[in-house]
């Protein structure tokens, strides 16, 4: 009860601060707001710069991906960290780490919560279709990750699809079978490896004396023809890291929420 009161106070204060900040925003569609203005004080505004120079700078036709993963790389990196933090919070709050509840432990007692629908013959239709669909979903998700430069998509979207494919398997079959293929150890590891890949692409330019996340410096390392292609390729690497984190955290959140942190039984 006390925790609920504290949580309500925290939510109310945060909401009030956010509402207060809204009053400082430019009006919606205001042509003179910094984001929309073509020329501001003699120098072109940020949006105009991106529209005119993104392709020249990075050889990436999709402006959104270029801004997200390159120009605003810091932002995206910490967005990924936010997702990781959310997953870790749910893990910390929900996960029950008792020896007899470990997912690898032999199931001595029949799973009371793992009730099947009216016998197994109804379930086999859904389970079979999902088993056929899951690999196709995953292939498409990889395409979305890798094709984020040229079409809508990227690490977040592809990662969500990858996570959803595992959630689909867990929903249609059983969480236990899915955890055999994608264990807790694996997804926690992948979540952190994803962040490390992103941060690694940030730290490598420091090695040659450039700024953090300045991908252009990697042209020698990636053996590209110029700095533009190095930025393009580094964006792909960064997106892969984002996809790994998002996929793992999606599945971790589902597995913990659906089983109240026990990782067996559940939906």
């Amino acid at each position: 009860m006390k925790a609920k009161i504290f949580a309500s106070i925290a939510v109310a204060i945060t909401g009030a601060v956010l509402l207060y900040a809204v009053s400082d925003f430019p009006r919606f569609g205001d042509p003179r707001s910094p984001a929309n203005a073509g020329v501001e004080g003699g120098s072109p505004s940020a949006s105009l710069y991106y529209i005119e120079n993104t392709y020249r700078d990075t050889k990436v036709p999709n402006l959104v991906t270029a801004i997200l993963a390159d120009y605003r790389g810091y932002d995206t990196m910490f967005e990924t960290v936010v997702i990781l933090t959310a997953g870790m919070s749910i893990f910390a709050i929900l996960r029950v780490l008792r020896r007899d509840d470990a997912p690898g432990a032999p199931a001595s007692a029949p799973d009371s919560s793992d009730h099947s629908i009216d016998g197994d013959h109804h379930r086999i239709i859904v389970a079979t279709t999902c088993r056929i669909a899951a690999p196709l979903i995953q292939i498409f998700a990889l395409y979305v990750v890798a094709h984020g430069h040229h079409s809508p998509g990227g690490g977040f979207q592809g990662g969500v699809m990858l996570g959803a494919s595992f959630i689909l398997l867990a929903l249609s079959g059983s969480l236990r079978d899915t955890l055999v293929r994608f264990s807790e150890q694996q997804y926690l590891r992948l979540a952190f490896i994803g962040i490390l890949i992103y941060a690694g692409f940030g730290f490598l330019p420091l090695w040659v004396g450039r700024n953090f996340l300045d991908y252009g410096a990697l042209s020698g390392l990636l053996m590209t023809s110029g700095e533009e292609m190095a930025r393009s390729h580094s964006m792909l690497g960064v997106e892969i890291g984002v996809a790994m984190t998002v996929m793992s955290i999606m599945f971790a959140i589902f597995a913990n929420l659906s089983t109240r942190g026990r990782l067996h039984g559940g939906l």
Partner: peptide
């Protein structure tokens, strides 16, 4: 894909209703 998934979702929904 629609031929595969649409009947499956119908079946799953009917099952859930039952």
């Amino acid at each position: 894909f629609i031929y595969l998934t649409s009947p499956t979702s119908t079946s799953a929904l009917a099952d859930a209703g039952w």
